[in-house]
Design a protein around this nucleic acid. Structure first.
Lengths: 149, 149
DNA sequence: GTTCCTGCAAAAGCTTTGCAGAAGA
DNA sequence: TCTTCTGCAAAGCTTTTGCAGGAAC
């Protein structure tokens, strides 16, 4: 998919965020790469487009987006935040072999927790960890090869 | 509850961890304070018991416990890890007012996710955020007072 | 006598802050 | 003009690493 400058500006304006060039590019990147990037990845990618870009701006922008509710911050590991354009409630699966984070549909909005009666819940997160199918196949393949040789 | 040296040593031995004094104290602390402490809190508390204690040892110990599957690392915020003695599957609720992390019962082991067919899931985490009842009551109380005065 | 553990100091890595100049309203 | 934004440099924080002395088995 492709997004016009107008689409992107509109989205920012809807959250009271001024449409600077840097912000538009970060937003565009997040929409086109829904792969839960961290600040580093976004920075590296956009440096090609904006040579003078600084990491501070990436952080400023991401924090602004997060405050505005445009993106969600994922803290699956403790040493880096990952950013997710907010679409609908979904869970995350992190493969501990390859590091890929997958989305999966799960609806916790309906879940009613007895112990949280009287609490206000504003955010519901689910993340699983394990090994993804791709890596499992690779591991099995390696083992078979090992066995043969 | 109180735990004898023998109980604690046994628990460590069961995970192939040598029962040094420091490790026993960290374990004891985690069992007696199931309040999801971070490294800092554990360090401060245990410094009273072990004056020569260093933060490195806290990290060494917690990492060892985590590797052995004795504790679970919670990454609800990105700037600090919190540690949770593993008991049974439960969710975490973090109050954004007072910072307290509450446990609640939720069983995701039964959840079957179509999109994760062929994946191996080793860890399932749920965390909610919002405002706890205690803080909600305080906020309401303040508002009432404000209104009266 | 080895191997493992502790803790100091230093480093590493992610993120925030201060600030001055530039851009936008 | 006045506010907001960018990006450099520096600082802040949590966590890890290197290493030497000490403890445990």
């Amino acid at each position: 998919m492709n997004f016009s400058h107008k689409d992107l500006s509109g989205k920012l304006a809807g959250h009271n965020i001024r449409p600077s060039f840097q912000r538009l590019k970060v937003l565009e990147y997040l929409i086109q790469n829904q792969c839960h990037p961290n600040a580093e990845q976004i920075f590296n990618e956009l440096q090609n487009v904006i040579p003078t870009l600084s990491k501070t701006t990436i952080y400023n922008t991401l924090n602004k987006f997060a405050d505005a509710g445009l993106v969600k911050v994922l803290n699956i590991e403790d040493n880096e935040a990952r950013y997710d354009i907010i679409t609908e409630t979904h869970g995350h699966f992190k493969c501990e072999e390859c590091g890929t984070i997958y989305n999966f549909k799960i609806d916790l909005d309906a879940v009613n927790v007895e112990e949280l009666k009287g609490f206000i819940t504003t955010e519901r997160n689910v993340y699983f960890k394990g090994t993804c199918q791709k890596c499992l196949l690779n591991i099995n393949y390696s083992k078979r090869k090992e066995h043969v040789s």
